[in-house]
């Protein structure tokens, strides 16, 4: 766990050097495959899946919870932004999974005409790091309104793979 975090951190530093103009746009969020209850788009990035009856995949549900415990105090409820931090449901339309990860892990500073803002680095916070994909897929689901505001009413069961990864990541030293 420690190794992969460090690897991701290095990636974050590199990515955050790039300007917003160079950001690579994410692909179509449509899920094309599923591995152990986790969904991926055509580029292989994690994404959400909402069934016709409104049942969301567990990762998206988990992302809803983690977003509202880690992110929403600055970025506002339902990823809709606040007076001092952007609406992430819109931000994830402009940058891709790698850049998202880099910003959350490494943090960043925006200086714009006296309107400075600071995104802290979450690399030491397991509540964000162990659920980075979950938060990302929740934001993608919000970006297309595939998931509305508030708590998703129906969700898939917690996949065994989710529990295994959670236990491993949260108990890592």
């Amino acid at each position: 766990m420690r190794l992969s975090l460090a690897g991701a951190l290095a990636l974050g530093v590199i990515m955050s050097v790039g300007t917003a103009a160079n950001a690579e746009a994410p692909g179509d969020p449509k899920a094309v495959k599923s591995v152990d209850g986790k969904y991926f788009d055509a580029k292989g990035d994690p994404t959400y899946n909402v069934k016709p009856d409104g049942t969301v995949d567990f990762y998206t549900f988990s992302g809803y919870r983690r977003y509202h415990s880690e992110c929403h105090v600055c970025h506002g409820p339902n990823a809709e932004g606040s007076t001092y931090a952007p609406a992430l449901k819109d931000s994830v339309k402009r940058f891709d999974y790698a850049e998202f990860s880099g910003i959350v892990i490494g943090g960043r500073e925006n200086k714009q005409a006296g309107n400075d803002s600071v995104m802290p680095a979450f690399a030491d916070n397991k509540n964000a790091m162990c659920y980075l994909d979950d938060i990302y897929v929740y934001l993608r689901a919000r970006s297309t309104e595939a998931v509305g505001r508030g708590r998703p009413e129906k969700k898939e069961d917690k996949p065994a793979a989710f529990s295994d990864a959670e236990t491993k990541c949260m108990s890592a030293k």
């Binding site: 988990s62 919870r65 509202h68 415990s69 880690e70 105090v73 802290p120 979450f122 030491d124 916070n125 397991k126 509540n127 964000a128 162990c130 708590r151 959670e166 949260m170």
Partner: peptide, 20 residues
């Protein structure tokens, strides 16, 4: 009240449940 797993990091949010 729905609790979920949470770990403490100094200076960061520490919320382990959603409620309605």
């Amino acid at each position: 009240y729905e609790p979920f797993r949470v770990s403490y990091t100094a200076g960061q949010p520490y919320v382990g449940a959603t409620l309605e």
